[in-house]
Design a binder for these strands. Structure first.
Lengths: 233, 233
DNA sequence: TCGCTCGCCTTTGTATACACGATGGGCTAG
DNA sequence: CTAGCCCATCGTGTATACAAAGGCGAGCGA
Protein backbone atom coordinates (compact mmCIF):
# COMPACT_ATOMS: atom_id res chain seq x y z
CA UNK A 1 0.00 0.00 0.00
CA UNK A 2 1.29 3.42 -0.94
CA UNK A 3 0.72 6.16 1.56
CA UNK A 4 1.59 9.62 0.39
CA UNK A 5 2.61 11.43 3.53
CA UNK A 6 3.65 14.45 1.53
CA UNK A 7 0.03 15.18 0.65
CA UNK A 8 -1.15 15.23 4.26
CA UNK A 9 -3.72 17.46 5.85
CA UNK A 10 -2.83 21.15 6.09
CA UNK A 11 -2.56 20.68 9.83
CA UNK A 12 0.42 18.44 9.14
CA UNK A 13 3.04 21.06 9.91
CA UNK A 14 5.61 18.53 11.02
CA UNK A 15 8.68 17.63 9.04
CA UNK A 16 8.38 15.02 6.36
CA UNK A 17 11.32 13.12 7.80
CA UNK A 18 9.59 13.12 11.17
CA UNK A 19 6.33 11.82 9.73
CA UNK A 20 8.24 9.06 7.98
CA UNK A 21 10.00 8.26 11.23
CA UNK A 22 6.70 8.00 13.07
CA UNK A 23 5.18 5.86 10.33
CA UNK A 24 8.15 3.47 10.36
CA UNK A 25 8.13 3.35 14.15
CA UNK A 26 4.49 2.28 14.08
CA UNK A 27 5.04 -0.27 11.37
CA UNK A 28 7.90 -1.85 13.26
CA UNK A 29 6.04 -1.78 16.58
CA UNK A 30 3.02 -3.38 14.93
CA UNK A 31 5.16 -6.00 13.27
CA UNK A 32 4.23 -4.93 9.74
CA UNK A 33 7.93 -4.60 9.15
CA UNK A 34 9.20 -7.86 10.62
CA UNK A 35 12.52 -8.22 12.38
CA UNK A 36 15.42 -8.86 10.07
CA UNK A 37 13.70 -7.27 7.09
CA UNK A 38 16.00 -5.34 4.79
CA UNK A 39 14.76 -1.82 4.18
CA UNK A 40 15.43 -0.36 0.76
CA UNK A 41 15.74 3.40 0.89
CA UNK A 42 14.43 4.04 -2.60
CA UNK A 43 11.52 1.70 -2.05
CA UNK A 44 10.53 3.46 1.16
CA UNK A 45 10.94 6.82 -0.55
CA UNK A 46 8.57 5.73 -3.31
CA UNK A 47 6.10 4.34 -0.82
CA UNK A 48 5.98 7.58 1.14
CA UNK A 49 6.05 9.74 -1.95
CA UNK A 50 9.27 11.40 -0.90
CA UNK A 51 12.91 11.41 -1.86
CA UNK A 52 15.62 9.37 -0.21
CA UNK A 53 16.87 12.28 1.87
CA UNK A 54 14.09 12.43 4.50
CA UNK A 55 13.89 8.63 4.47
CA UNK A 56 17.56 8.41 5.32
CA UNK A 57 17.15 10.92 8.13
CA UNK A 58 14.26 8.92 9.52
CA UNK A 59 16.24 5.67 9.34
CA UNK A 60 19.31 7.15 10.99
CA UNK A 61 17.11 8.38 13.81
CA UNK A 62 15.50 4.97 14.22
CA UNK A 63 18.98 3.49 14.39
CA UNK A 64 19.78 5.66 17.42
CA UNK A 65 16.70 4.44 19.25
CA UNK A 66 17.62 0.90 18.30
CA UNK A 67 14.65 -0.06 16.16
CA UNK A 68 16.80 -0.62 13.10
CA UNK A 69 20.45 -1.33 12.48
CA UNK A 70 22.54 0.51 9.92
CA UNK A 71 25.51 -1.38 8.64
CA UNK A 72 27.71 0.98 6.63
CA UNK A 73 27.24 0.50 2.91
CA UNK A 74 25.29 -2.65 3.57
CA UNK A 75 21.89 -1.21 4.20
CA UNK A 76 19.37 -1.00 6.99
CA UNK A 77 17.56 -3.90 8.60
CA UNK A 78 14.87 -3.98 11.25
CA UNK A 79 16.66 -4.94 14.42
CA UNK A 80 16.60 -8.67 14.91
CA UNK A 81 16.01 -9.33 18.56
CA UNK A 82 17.19 -12.57 20.03
CA UNK A 83 15.06 -14.20 22.70
CA UNK A 84 17.78 -13.27 25.19
CA UNK A 85 17.71 -9.65 24.13
CA UNK A 86 13.93 -9.49 24.49
CA UNK A 87 14.13 -10.94 27.97
CA UNK A 88 16.86 -8.47 28.85
CA UNK A 89 14.60 -5.67 27.73
CA UNK A 90 11.68 -7.02 29.71
CA UNK A 91 13.82 -7.34 32.79
CA UNK A 92 15.04 -3.78 32.39
CA UNK A 93 11.47 -2.68 31.86
CA UNK A 94 10.48 -4.47 35.07
CA UNK A 95 13.15 -2.65 37.02
CA UNK A 96 12.27 0.69 35.47
CA UNK A 97 8.58 0.19 36.23
CA UNK A 98 9.47 -0.77 39.77
CA UNK A 99 11.51 2.34 40.33
CA UNK A 100 8.79 4.50 38.79
CA UNK A 101 6.02 3.11 40.96
CA UNK A 102 8.19 3.47 44.03
CA UNK A 103 8.79 7.16 43.40
CA UNK A 104 5.22 7.67 42.27
CA UNK A 105 3.89 6.19 45.49
CA UNK A 106 5.81 8.75 47.51
CA UNK A 107 5.10 11.72 45.27
CA UNK A 108 1.77 11.39 43.53
CA UNK A 109 -0.83 13.98 44.38
CA UNK A 110 -4.23 12.93 45.75
CA UNK A 111 -5.71 13.84 42.39
CA UNK A 112 -3.28 11.60 40.55
CA UNK A 113 -3.97 8.74 42.94
CA UNK A 114 -7.69 9.19 42.47
CA UNK A 115 -7.33 9.17 38.70
CA UNK A 116 -5.18 6.05 38.81
CA UNK A 117 -7.71 4.20 40.94
CA UNK A 118 -10.46 5.22 38.57
CA UNK A 119 -8.49 3.86 35.63
CA UNK A 120 -7.85 0.64 37.45
CA UNK A 121 -11.52 0.14 38.27
CA UNK A 122 -12.52 0.64 34.66
CA UNK A 123 -10.22 -2.16 33.55
CA UNK A 124 -12.29 -4.81 35.34
CA UNK A 125 -14.99 -4.56 32.72
CA UNK A 126 -12.47 -5.08 29.91
CA UNK A 127 -11.18 -8.26 31.50
CA UNK A 128 -14.69 -9.64 31.89
CA UNK A 129 -15.43 -8.85 28.26
CA UNK A 130 -12.10 -10.37 27.23
CA UNK A 131 -11.37 -7.24 25.21
CA UNK A 132 -7.62 -7.49 24.71
CA UNK A 133 -7.33 -4.34 22.61
CA UNK A 134 -9.16 -2.23 25.17
CA UNK A 135 -7.11 -3.71 27.99
CA UNK A 136 -3.91 -3.09 26.07
CA UNK A 137 -4.87 0.56 25.64
CA UNK A 138 -5.80 0.83 29.30
CA UNK A 139 -2.56 -0.81 30.29
CA UNK A 140 -0.57 1.76 28.42
CA UNK A 141 -2.51 4.59 30.03
CA UNK A 142 -2.19 3.03 33.48
CA UNK A 143 1.56 2.68 33.29
CA UNK A 144 2.17 6.05 31.65
CA UNK A 145 0.06 7.66 34.31
CA UNK A 146 2.43 6.14 36.83
CA UNK A 147 5.44 7.46 34.93
CA UNK A 148 4.09 10.98 35.09
CA UNK A 149 3.27 10.56 38.77
CA UNK A 150 6.99 10.24 39.49
CA UNK A 151 7.14 14.00 38.83
CA UNK A 152 10.41 13.33 37.09
CA UNK A 153 10.01 14.16 33.43
CA UNK A 154 13.26 12.55 32.36
CA UNK A 155 12.42 9.26 34.02
CA UNK A 156 8.93 9.34 32.54
CA UNK A 157 10.34 9.81 29.05
CA UNK A 158 12.85 7.01 29.43
CA UNK A 159 10.20 4.64 30.72
CA UNK A 160 7.79 5.50 27.92
CA UNK A 161 10.49 5.04 25.30
CA UNK A 162 11.45 1.63 26.61
CA UNK A 163 7.80 0.62 26.85
CA UNK A 164 7.33 1.70 23.25
CA UNK A 165 10.10 -0.60 22.08
CA UNK A 166 8.46 -3.58 23.75
CA UNK A 167 5.06 -2.73 22.38
CA UNK A 168 4.87 -5.47 19.78
CA UNK A 169 5.54 -8.13 22.39
CA UNK A 170 3.25 -6.93 25.12
CA UNK A 171 0.09 -7.49 23.14
CA UNK A 172 1.23 -10.96 22.24
CA UNK A 173 1.78 -11.74 25.87
CA UNK A 174 -1.69 -10.55 26.89
CA UNK A 175 -3.30 -13.19 24.70
CA UNK A 176 -1.59 -16.00 26.54
CA UNK A 177 -4.07 -18.07 28.55
CA UNK A 178 -5.61 -16.12 31.39
CA UNK A 179 -2.79 -13.62 31.36
CA UNK A 180 -5.12 -10.63 31.12
CA UNK A 181 -7.03 -11.58 34.26
CA UNK A 182 -3.77 -12.27 36.07
CA UNK A 183 -2.42 -8.95 34.90
CA UNK A 184 -5.34 -7.14 36.49
CA UNK A 185 -4.97 -9.06 39.73
CA UNK A 186 -1.34 -8.03 39.85
CA UNK A 187 -2.30 -4.42 39.22
CA UNK A 188 -4.64 -4.82 42.14
CA UNK A 189 -1.85 -5.79 44.52
CA UNK A 190 0.24 -2.89 43.30
CA UNK A 191 -2.67 -0.51 43.87
CA UNK A 192 -3.05 -1.83 47.40
CA UNK A 193 0.58 -1.06 48.18
CA UNK A 194 0.23 2.40 46.68
CA UNK A 195 -2.85 3.04 48.80
CA UNK A 196 -0.83 2.13 51.88
CA UNK A 197 1.94 4.46 50.78
CA UNK A 198 4.36 1.54 50.79
CA UNK A 199 6.54 2.40 47.83
CA UNK A 200 9.05 -0.40 48.30
CA UNK A 201 6.32 -2.99 48.38
CA UNK A 202 4.64 -1.45 45.35
CA UNK A 203 7.97 -1.65 43.56
CA UNK A 204 8.43 -5.33 44.42
CA UNK A 205 4.96 -6.18 43.24
CA UNK A 206 5.32 -4.18 40.07
CA UNK A 207 8.60 -5.94 39.32
CA UNK A 208 6.91 -9.27 39.82
CA UNK A 209 4.05 -8.16 37.61
CA UNK A 210 6.37 -7.27 34.75
CA UNK A 211 8.44 -10.41 35.15
CA UNK A 212 5.26 -12.48 35.03
CA UNK A 213 4.42 -10.81 31.76
CA UNK A 214 7.90 -11.64 30.50
CA UNK A 215 7.48 -15.25 31.51
CA UNK A 216 4.17 -15.46 29.70
CA UNK A 217 5.86 -14.08 26.63
CA UNK A 218 8.77 -16.45 26.94
CA UNK A 219 6.43 -19.40 26.68
CA UNK A 220 5.10 -17.90 23.49
CA UNK A 221 8.57 -17.33 22.10
CA UNK A 222 9.60 -20.88 22.84
CA UNK A 223 6.44 -22.24 21.23
CA UNK A 224 6.83 -20.08 18.13
CA UNK A 225 10.59 -20.08 18.23
CA UNK A 226 12.18 -18.00 15.56
CA UNK A 227 9.14 -15.85 14.92
CA UNK A 228 10.99 -12.81 16.16
CA UNK A 229 14.45 -13.96 15.22
CA UNK A 230 14.04 -15.16 11.70
CA UNK A 231 12.02 -12.30 10.39
CA UNK A 232 11.32 -12.10 6.67
CA UNK A 233 14.40 -13.53 5.06
CA UNK B 1 43.34 -22.43 7.84
CA UNK B 2 41.07 -19.46 7.58
CA UNK B 3 42.57 -16.08 8.27
CA UNK B 4 40.39 -13.01 8.53
CA UNK B 5 42.14 -10.46 6.37
CA UNK B 6 39.51 -7.83 7.10
CA UNK B 7 41.28 -6.82 10.29
CA UNK B 8 42.47 -3.49 8.90
CA UNK B 9 42.00 -0.20 10.68
CA UNK B 10 38.27 0.56 10.69
CA UNK B 11 39.08 4.24 11.21
CA UNK B 12 38.66 5.19 7.59
CA UNK B 13 35.77 2.82 7.12
CA UNK B 14 33.38 4.61 9.41
CA UNK B 15 30.70 6.81 7.96
CA UNK B 16 31.39 10.51 7.72
CA UNK B 17 28.06 11.28 9.36
CA UNK B 18 29.00 8.98 12.22
CA UNK B 19 32.36 10.62 12.74
CA UNK B 20 30.66 14.00 12.81
CA UNK B 21 28.13 12.68 15.29
CA UNK B 22 30.87 11.43 17.59
CA UNK B 23 32.76 14.70 17.31
CA UNK B 24 29.68 16.75 18.15
CA UNK B 25 28.79 14.42 21.02
CA UNK B 26 32.23 14.97 22.50
CA UNK B 27 32.12 18.71 22.03
CA UNK B 28 28.75 18.95 23.73
CA UNK B 29 29.75 16.63 26.57
CA UNK B 30 32.93 18.64 27.12
CA UNK B 31 31.02 21.90 27.04
CA UNK B 32 32.86 23.23 24.00
CA UNK B 33 29.44 23.71 22.46
CA UNK B 34 27.59 25.40 25.30
CA UNK B 35 23.93 24.83 26.04
CA UNK B 36 21.62 27.03 24.05
CA UNK B 37 24.12 27.56 21.26
CA UNK B 38 22.61 27.75 17.80
CA UNK B 39 24.27 25.34 15.40
CA UNK B 40 24.58 26.45 11.80
CA UNK B 41 24.58 23.50 9.45
CA UNK B 42 26.74 25.11 6.78
CA UNK B 43 29.24 26.31 9.35
CA UNK B 44 29.57 22.81 10.83
CA UNK B 45 29.87 21.37 7.33
CA UNK B 46 32.73 23.73 6.56
CA UNK B 47 34.42 22.98 9.85
CA UNK B 48 34.34 19.24 9.21
CA UNK B 49 35.15 19.60 5.55
CA UNK B 50 31.91 17.96 4.53
CA UNK B 51 28.62 18.92 2.98
CA UNK B 52 25.43 19.65 4.87
CA UNK B 53 23.99 16.20 4.26
CA UNK B 54 26.09 14.16 6.72
CA UNK B 55 25.98 17.06 9.17
CA UNK B 56 22.20 17.00 9.10
CA UNK B 57 22.15 13.25 9.64
CA UNK B 58 24.45 13.64 12.62
CA UNK B 59 22.30 16.41 14.09
CA UNK B 60 19.06 14.51 13.64
CA UNK B 61 20.63 11.58 15.45
CA UNK B 62 21.77 13.78 18.29
CA UNK B 63 18.24 15.12 18.53
CA UNK B 64 16.93 11.61 19.20
CA UNK B 65 19.35 11.10 22.06
CA UNK B 66 18.39 14.50 23.39
CA UNK B 67 21.69 16.35 23.12
CA UNK B 68 20.29 18.92 20.72
CA UNK B 69 16.83 20.16 19.84
CA UNK B 70 15.56 20.56 16.30
CA UNK B 71 12.82 23.10 15.86
CA UNK B 72 11.34 22.75 12.38
CA UNK B 73 12.71 25.40 10.05
CA UNK B 74 14.15 27.24 12.98
CA UNK B 75 17.42 25.46 13.34
CA UNK B 76 19.21 23.29 15.85
CA UNK B 77 20.34 24.35 19.30
CA UNK B 78 22.30 22.51 21.96
CA UNK B 79 19.71 21.38 24.47
CA UNK B 80 19.32 23.91 27.20
CA UNK B 81 18.89 22.04 30.45
CA UNK B 82 17.12 23.70 33.32
CA UNK B 83 18.38 23.05 36.82
CA UNK B 84 15.25 21.00 37.42
CA UNK B 85 15.88 18.89 34.36
CA UNK B 86 19.46 18.21 35.42
CA UNK B 87 18.30 17.13 38.85
CA UNK B 88 15.67 14.90 37.28
CA UNK B 89 18.38 13.28 35.20
CA UNK B 90 20.60 12.80 38.22
CA UNK B 91 17.77 11.27 40.18
CA UNK B 92 16.99 8.91 37.31
CA UNK B 93 20.68 8.07 37.09
CA UNK B 94 20.70 7.33 40.82
CA UNK B 95 17.81 4.92 40.42
CA UNK B 96 19.33 3.28 37.38
CA UNK B 97 22.66 2.86 39.14
CA UNK B 98 20.88 1.41 42.13
CA UNK B 99 19.04 -1.17 40.06
CA UNK B 100 22.24 -2.06 38.22
CA UNK B 101 24.27 -2.60 41.34
CA UNK B 102 21.48 -4.66 42.85
CA UNK B 103 21.39 -7.02 39.90
CA UNK B 104 25.16 -7.02 39.60
CA UNK B 105 25.53 -8.06 43.22
CA UNK B 106 23.43 -11.14 42.59
CA UNK B 107 24.91 -12.04 39.24
CA UNK B 108 28.52 -10.96 38.98
CA UNK B 109 31.07 -13.70 38.57
CA UNK B 110 33.92 -14.07 41.05
CA UNK B 111 36.25 -12.77 38.38
CA UNK B 112 34.13 -9.67 37.88
CA UNK B 113 33.96 -9.05 41.61
CA UNK B 114 37.73 -9.42 41.88
CA UNK B 115 38.28 -6.98 39.03
CA UNK B 116 35.89 -4.48 40.58
CA UNK B 117 37.66 -4.63 43.95
CA UNK B 118 40.97 -4.15 42.21
CA UNK B 119 39.65 -1.06 40.45
CA UNK B 120 38.31 0.31 43.68
CA UNK B 121 41.62 -0.16 45.48
CA UNK B 122 43.48 1.66 42.76
CA UNK B 123 41.27 4.72 43.19
CA UNK B 124 42.62 5.42 46.69
CA UNK B 125 45.87 6.66 45.25
CA UNK B 126 44.08 9.08 42.92
CA UNK B 127 42.16 10.60 45.80
CA UNK B 128 45.34 11.11 47.80
CA UNK B 129 46.99 12.75 44.82
CA UNK B 130 43.88 14.87 44.25
CA UNK B 131 43.94 13.82 40.60
CA UNK B 132 40.42 14.65 39.48
CA UNK B 133 40.93 13.62 35.87
CA UNK B 134 42.25 10.20 36.83
CA UNK B 135 39.47 9.71 39.35
CA UNK B 136 36.90 10.75 36.78
CA UNK B 137 38.26 8.15 34.37
CA UNK B 138 38.30 5.52 37.11
CA UNK B 139 34.76 6.44 38.10
CA UNK B 140 33.52 5.83 34.62
CA UNK B 141 35.28 2.48 34.46
CA UNK B 142 33.99 1.50 37.88
CA UNK B 143 30.39 2.21 37.07
CA UNK B 144 30.49 0.74 33.58
CA UNK B 145 32.04 -2.39 34.99
CA UNK B 146 29.01 -2.62 37.25
CA UNK B 147 26.67 -2.17 34.30
CA UNK B 148 28.26 -5.06 32.49
CA UNK B 149 28.13 -7.17 35.64
CA UNK B 150 24.33 -7.06 35.50
CA UNK B 151 24.67 -9.50 32.59
CA UNK B 152 21.86 -7.59 30.95
CA UNK B 153 23.20 -5.93 27.83
CA UNK B 154 20.16 -3.72 27.32
CA UNK B 155 20.29 -2.35 30.83
CA UNK B 156 24.01 -1.78 30.54
CA UNK B 157 23.54 0.21 27.33
CA UNK B 158 20.78 2.34 28.81
CA UNK B 159 22.81 3.10 31.88
CA UNK B 160 25.89 3.99 29.86
CA UNK B 161 23.87 6.27 27.58
CA UNK B 162 22.35 8.13 30.50
CA UNK B 163 25.71 8.43 32.19
CA UNK B 164 27.12 9.85 28.97
CA UNK B 165 24.54 12.60 28.91
CA UNK B 166 25.47 13.67 32.42
CA UNK B 167 29.16 13.60 31.68
CA UNK B 168 29.70 17.35 31.57
CA UNK B 169 28.20 17.78 35.02
CA UNK B 170 29.87 14.93 36.81
CA UNK B 171 33.34 16.36 36.47
CA UNK B 172 32.14 19.69 37.78
CA UNK B 173 30.66 17.99 40.79
CA UNK B 174 33.89 16.13 41.61
CA UNK B 175 35.74 19.41 42.09
CA UNK B 176 33.39 20.55 44.82
CA UNK B 177 35.11 20.64 48.22
CA UNK B 178 36.11 17.18 49.41
CA UNK B 179 33.60 15.54 47.11
CA UNK B 180 36.17 13.20 45.59
CA UNK B 181 37.20 11.76 48.96
CA UNK B 182 33.55 11.42 49.92
CA UNK B 183 32.82 9.72 46.64
CA UNK B 184 35.42 7.09 47.33
CA UNK B 185 34.11 6.52 50.84
CA UNK B 186 30.67 5.97 49.38
CA UNK B 187 32.07 3.54 46.87
CA UNK B 188 33.61 1.78 49.84
CA UNK B 189 30.24 1.24 51.52
CA UNK B 190 28.78 -0.03 48.26
CA UNK B 191 31.67 -2.46 47.87
CA UNK B 192 31.07 -3.73 51.37
CA UNK B 193 27.44 -4.51 50.59
CA UNK B 194 28.46 -6.22 47.36
CA UNK B 195 30.98 -8.33 49.24
CA UNK B 196 28.22 -9.43 51.60
CA UNK B 197 26.01 -10.26 48.65
CA UNK B 198 23.42 -7.83 49.94
CA UNK B 199 22.08 -6.42 46.71
CA UNK B 200 19.29 -4.36 48.24
CA UNK B 201 21.68 -2.65 50.59
CA UNK B 202 24.17 -2.05 47.82
CA UNK B 203 21.35 -0.46 45.82
CA UNK B 204 20.36 1.84 48.69
CA UNK B 205 23.94 2.93 49.21
CA UNK B 206 24.52 3.47 45.52
CA UNK B 207 21.38 5.58 45.31
CA UNK B 208 22.60 7.66 48.22
CA UNK B 209 26.00 7.97 46.57
CA UNK B 210 24.50 9.32 43.36
CA UNK B 211 22.14 11.65 45.16
CA UNK B 212 25.04 13.02 47.15
CA UNK B 213 26.79 13.75 43.88
CA UNK B 214 23.66 15.49 42.66
CA UNK B 215 23.47 17.58 45.81
CA UNK B 216 27.10 18.61 45.41
CA UNK B 217 26.32 19.64 41.88
CA UNK B 218 23.20 21.51 42.92
CA UNK B 219 25.25 23.77 45.13
CA UNK B 220 27.43 24.55 42.15
CA UNK B 221 24.44 25.25 39.93
CA UNK B 222 22.94 27.59 42.48
CA UNK B 223 26.23 29.41 42.91
CA UNK B 224 26.80 29.76 39.19
CA UNK B 225 23.13 29.97 38.34
CA UNK B 226 22.45 30.29 34.68
CA UNK B 227 25.76 28.86 33.56
CA UNK B 228 23.97 25.88 32.09
CA UNK B 229 20.74 27.64 31.30
CA UNK B 230 21.82 30.80 29.57
CA UNK B 231 24.39 29.28 27.29
CA UNK B 232 25.90 31.44 24.59
CA UNK B 233 23.15 33.84 23.70
C1' DT C 1 31.76 -30.12 -11.56
C1' DC C 2 33.43 -27.07 -8.34
C1' DG C 3 35.69 -22.92 -7.07
C1' DC C 4 37.81 -18.65 -7.86
C1' DT C 5 37.96 -14.16 -10.01
C1' DC C 6 36.67 -10.30 -12.50
C1' DG C 7 33.44 -6.96 -13.76
C1' DC C 8 28.79 -5.22 -13.97
C1' DC C 9 24.90 -3.64 -11.45
C1' DT C 10 22.55 -2.34 -7.52
C1' DT C 11 22.39 0.40 -3.50
C1' DT C 12 24.36 3.32 -0.24
C1' DG C 13 26.90 7.69 1.06
C1' DT C 14 27.88 12.43 -0.05
C1' DA C 15 27.48 16.64 -2.64
C1' DT C 16 24.91 20.09 -4.85
C1' DA C 17 20.79 22.40 -6.34
C1' DC C 18 16.38 24.13 -5.46
C1' DA C 19 12.11 25.51 -2.65
C1' DC C 20 9.97 27.48 1.09
C1' DG C 21 9.33 29.39 5.56
C1' DA C 22 11.21 32.45 9.15
C1' DT C 23 13.54 36.49 10.63
C1' DG C 24 14.81 41.24 10.50
C1' DG C 25 15.10 45.79 8.66
C1' DG C 26 13.21 49.52 6.23
C1' DC C 27 9.47 52.07 4.65
C1' DT C 28 5.06 54.08 5.10
C1' DA C 29 1.04 55.59 7.37
C1' DG C 30 -1.28 57.22 11.38
C1' DC D 1 7.72 59.38 16.49
C1' DT D 2 5.96 54.95 16.60
C1' DA D 3 3.77 50.94 15.01
C1' DG D 4 2.73 47.79 11.58
C1' DC D 5 3.35 45.82 7.11
C1' DC D 6 6.15 44.31 3.27
C1' DC D 7 10.06 42.67 1.15
C1' DA D 8 14.74 41.00 1.06
C1' DT D 9 17.76 37.71 2.81
C1' DC D 10 19.23 33.90 5.19
C1' DG D 11 18.91 29.18 6.61
C1' DT D 12 16.50 25.05 6.78
C1' DG D 13 14.02 21.07 4.36
C1' DT D 14 13.73 18.28 0.30
C1' DA D 15 15.03 16.72 -4.20
C1' DT D 16 18.30 15.36 -7.48
C1' DA D 17 22.87 14.23 -9.10
C1' DC D 18 27.12 11.98 -8.59
C1' DA D 19 30.65 8.82 -6.50
C1' DA D 20 31.97 4.64 -4.64
C1' DA D 21 31.59 0.29 -2.34
C1' DG D 22 29.44 -4.25 -1.92
C1' DG D 23 26.89 -8.10 -3.92
C1' DC D 24 26.32 -11.32 -7.39
C1' DG D 25 26.60 -13.85 -11.42
C1' DA D 26 29.07 -15.12 -15.64
C1' DG D 27 33.11 -16.98 -17.31
C1' DC D 28 37.31 -19.33 -16.91
C1' DG D 29 40.46 -22.67 -15.06
C1' DA D 30 41.58 -26.75 -12.40
Amino acid sequence: MIVDLAQGEPEERTLLSQRIRNALTDEIARGDLPAGMQLDEQELADRFGASRTPVREALSQLAVSGLVEMRPRRGVVVTRLTAERIMDMFEAMAEIEAMCVRLATFRMTPLERSRLMHLHEESLDMVERGDVDAYDAFNREFHEHLYRATHNSFMAEQAAATRQRLNAFRRTQLRQGDRMARSREEHDTVMAAIAEGDGDNAARRMRAHMLNAATALERYIVEHLGAFQVGAD
